[in-house]
Design a protein around this nucleic acid. Sequence first.
DNA 1: GGCATCATACCAACCAGTCGGTATGGCCGC
DNA 2: GCGGCCATACCGACTGGTTGGTATGATGCC
Lengths: 185, 185
Amino acid sequence: MTLIRRNGFAATSIDQLCTAAGVTKGAFFHHFASKEALGVAAAEHWLAMTSPLFAEADYHALPDALARVLGYLDLREALIAGDIDAFTCLAGTLAQEVHQSSPAIAHAADRAIVGHATTLEADVGRALADHGVVDIDAAELALHFQAVLQGGFVLAKAAGDPEPARAGVRHLKRYVTLLCKGERA
Amino acid sequence: MTLIRRNGFAATSIDQLCTAAGVTKGAFFHHFASKEALGVAAAEHWLAMTSPLFAEADYHALPDALARVLGYLDLREALIAGDIDAFTCLAGTLAQEVHQSSPAIAHAADRAIVGHATTLEADVGRALADHGVVDIDAAELALHFQAVLQGGFVLAKAAGDPEPARAGVRHLKRYVTLLCKGERA
DNA sequence: GGCATCATACCAACCAGTCGGTATGGCCGC
DNA sequence: GCGGCCATACCGACTGGTTGGTATGATGCC
């Protein structure tokens, strides 16, 4: 499904998808009722595929919650490298493209993004609590992480360069550090 | 060109565009060499259209640079309201969709985003300098503003709700305030 | 046999882009 | 000021190819 990330959902034909996957069109429509159904399934598959990558990461073993949050952001920054289509997010691409034409796909993309953010919520909440930050909602901040990443991806695509996306994550780390410790990283 | 923001570039046919604009296909291809040329022109037009909106805003009259920066962010937050297709950014939509298939459009979109960020650079730089922040590049921070906005738009589209985009801007204001004043807003 | 899993051939709709033709209006010699 | 000339602006039917989707048949498994 890299094709969709590269060229977009509308610009990727079912024939292309079938050729790339080595199946025939008959097989495709046997498994998916329509192209839209494929989009929904792709968004769900995306969440299922990326989840273990973060679930099994090392930073979970750190004793300090803030360190775990910063560890997550370190990993995100490290993942932003090489070819643009390699680190970019399918859910964001889908959401931006079909938000009006296909509510079903948009909703699936939203679940993928929010679902991932939810996995951060506990650590973010504890990090904030550990440092006496009481006026910030952990879920909202975790979602903001995703916003910064998605925005970084957009800028990276426009510029043809991963650097703006990495810079965004660095700002995010500084923000979290300032929030919790009240001092510059 | 609202059609492109609503449905995406690939999903919007030239016939639709012509019908909406009240012109014929002959007239279209008289003015634009191809659909790609229209995309480039649309991105350029987008920058030209949105520029005065910010150039003439009130916050420019404020004496303090940090206040001007926060004033800009206040305006951005206020603009995120109502229908999703009304406040969303055309350049970001284009960039995400055609970054691989059409380098010309992607580059035009990049110029629109970076061009807008450049107009913030002076105020951001002065605000940082006024508060003794020396290790942050003003241009990069101004670009980060755009990343947060673009990311907010993506989440808003996925959720079908402007709130995540507004929340992103609020976090941005807090970040800038923390950076400059070292304290919570 | 009967059912799930495909493969092949096909279709109507739609796409970006073309092309022959027309209307308009400025310009120039007279 | 007028007739001929031509460039620019525009029209809309048309084309070759592609699209998402379907109808029908082959194949293997129980």
